[in-house]
Design a protein around this nucleic acid. Structure first.
Length: 573
RNA sequence: GCGCCCGUAGCUCAGUUGGAUAGAGCGCGGGACUUCUAAUCCUGAGGCCGCAGGUUCGAAUCCUGCCGGGCGCACCA
């Protein structure tokens, strides 16, 4: 068991013993008792708020409880000191051997250090990207793709059974437009000179699609009426675009498990609606006029509506358009109904910033369909501002002139893109400066972490070059300064669980930055004091121990990067 | 008008789900290269955590109301 859960259990046992011998009243609510590393290292290695949390219900002074708890915990063999501080904190200082043992545990666990079982194998669905299949991936999609993928990865590392999913919006009018645009390119491929009218997709990426269609069908549909080819071209073009998108995602190292087609829903939309109808949540009605600016052409129309307001939404939501066809929302309701039927215990969707207004209705739908038993967590992923040496990169979607994901990955590399996308909370805007992200300096977090790992990787080579014969490492040779690194590394398992529970993969990037900083600091101590160097020709045994220590730190960095989908570099150029 | 997100050092941002004296990078001042790569490190200054109330042992964190910024507001996807 990892360090922190182990001591949580010790604290719980000690409290239970105090209850058993009558020192504390029975029936106390222990749910808010926390055992954490204190912010300030001078307060020791672990702190618990138990005394303060329980004082009121127990009718006792916090410090009195803390003192009893301290006496109990001080008897544990791993505890060097238990001290009551402040308003009633109990600070524990652990014996150095605890950290030596943790270092051994890191080395023994290897890549699996930090892997958690809190997920208990529960099935979780993470839906991300879901870009419309009307063009290649551009930078607008990139952040959601990386954040979603890293989140899925953290959840898997924390013990959930994760399905990575992509919802293909292949059913609306825009896909017809795509098919018509592809038909133009198809004619072009067969030798016609074409003009692309307003409202069609103008991008060059449809040229190879047209060529593929020409190769498959010859001139059969050149002069044919639209009805003869539209459905066929739609299917073929979407399939080709999805190939392209999958290839783009592969450039980022992303491979999703399920690609769910909106068009494939068919009569399942009606089934979802029937389910809601059975719950009395569907009615024919007329919505109130929206209050915003977009109300000019509004007129009251009776529609099929879902009682989203019963589940926290601001308005009931239309499931059918005024012409009787399904709304996009209706399809999405059916899609989420399908996810629920597949038995997930939690759903996560990643939305772009412009879909913020869609969150409540989707959550309302899932609440209604699941009887409030399956949470739908929606993460809003904010925009990325592309910069080049501080200047905004101009792009216009209308002219088809946007920065594609493939271009960016080609320019700066997959690892840089992935790491940078995780250097901020996903719900706030992010600057991506082409110049800065490849800079080799302290203020480039990718470089900084990679550099720490490369330094660690260099130590083994250095020791070999110096001809030092390394005995088996004896961690007893490591002092408190050395062990400070272990304390930080020991927080990795906790961090994994927190990042998974909060669904915030960016925390890993920050943690790795901290860990790298601690290592760089340690490294530089060797400049002032040669005795602190990792490799010391005059002390092979100590060198062996320090190399094992550095190796463990490198191990945690490598594991953390792997969860982020980033490869650790052993050398930098 | 309504809803959602955000407001923390000059700038860009963290903040362990309510804990102790609010942290880091950049920038600014001072310092460390005869080196295990100084691509780094050490150190100093810099804060009414937007404002005002509330909840409690304890609030940057939760609640309410303002102020300021962003996004979204039938029948597009």
């Amino acid at each position: 068991m990892n360090l922190y859960p182990r001591f949580s259990a010790h604290v719980a046992d000690a409290l239970a013993a105090l209850v058993a011998d009558g020192s504390l009243p029975a029936g106390l609510d222990m749910t808010h008792v926390a055992v954490e590393p204190p912010r300030d290292a001078s307060h020791g290695d672990l702190a618990t708020n138990a005394a303060m949390v329980l004082a009121k219900a127990a009718g006792m002074k916090p410090r009195d409880i803390a003192v009893m708890l301290a006496q109990s915990l001080a008897r544990l063999p791993d505890v060097a000191e238990a001290e009551v501080a402040g308003p009633g904190f109990l600070n524990l200082r652990l014996k150095p051997d605890v950290w030596r043992a943790e270092l051994a545990a890191i080395a023994a666990a290897g890549d699996d250090y930090g892997r958690s079982t809190i997920g208990a194998g529960k099935p979780v669905n993470v839906e991300y990207v879901s870009a419309n299949p009307t063009g290649p991936m551009h930078m607008g999609h990139c952040r959601g793709a990386v954040v979603g993928d890293a989140l899925a990865s953290v959840l898997a590392f924390a013990g959930y059974r994760v399905t990575k999913e992509y919802y293909i919006n292949d059913a609306g009018g825009q896909v017809d437009t795509l098919a018509r645009s592809a038909h133009l390119r198809y004619r072009e491929a067969l030798g016609e000179t074409i003009a692309i009218p307003e409202g069609f997709y103008p991008g060059d990426y449809l040229v190879p699609v047209g060529a593929a269609l020409a190769a498959e069908f010859g001139d059969r549909f050149v002069a044919a009426p639209e009805a003869a080819w539209l459905a066929l071209f739609r299917t073929r073009t979407v399939a080709l675009m999805m190939d392209r998108i999958r290839a783009d995602l592969a450039l980022l190292g992303i491979r999703q498990d399920v690609f769910f087609s909106e068009a494939s829903l068919g009569n399942r939309v009606q089934e979802a609606l029937d389910t809601l109808t059975a719950k009395g949540l569907i009615y024919e009605g007329v919505l109130e006029a929206p209050k915003g600016d977009a109300a000019e052409d509004w007129e009251p129309r009776p529609q099929t509506l879902f009682r989203a307001t019963q589940f926290g939404d601001d308005s009931d939501r239309a499931l059918k358009k005024s012409d009787g066809s399904w709304t996009y929302f209706a399809g999405d309701v059916a899609y989420h109904f399908d996810k629920l039927q597949r038995g997930y215990t939690a759903l996560v969707d990643l939305f772009g910033a412009d879909h913020g207004g869609y969150v409540k209705r989707m959550q309302a739908a899932v609440r209604a369909l699941s009887g409030n038993s399956v949470p739908l967590d929606i993460k809003i992923v904010q925009m990325v501002k592309l910069l080049r040496a501080g200047e905004p990169v101009k792009m216009s979607k209308r002219s088809g002139n946007f920065v594609t994901l493939a271009d960016v990955v080609e320019e700066v590399g997959k690892d840089v893109v992935r790491f940078i996308m995780l250097t901020k909370r996903s719900d706030s805007q992010l600057d991506f400066d082409f110049a800065k992200v490849v800079e080799q300096s302290r203020d480039n977090p990718v470089f900084y972490v990679q550099y720490a790992h490369a330094r660690i990787a260099s130590l083994g080579r250095k020791a070999a070059e110096a001809g030092i014969a390394l005995p088996a490492p004896d961690f007893g040779l490591l002092d408190d300064t050395d062990l400070a690194l272990v304390k930080l590394a020991a927080q990795w398992p906790r961090l994994v669980e927190q990042a998974a529970e909060a669904r915030e993969p960016h925390r890993i990037a920050f943690y790795l930055g901290d860990l790298a900083a601690a290592f760089h600091a340690q490294w530089n101590m060797g400049n002032d004091d040669a005795a602190r160097r990792f490799v010391r020709a005059d002390a092979p045994a100590l060198t062996a121990a320090r190399l094992a220590l550095a190796g463990a730190i490198g191990q945690v960095i490598r594991t953390g990067l792997a969860v982020m989908g980033v490869e650790a570099a052993s050398e930098l150029h």
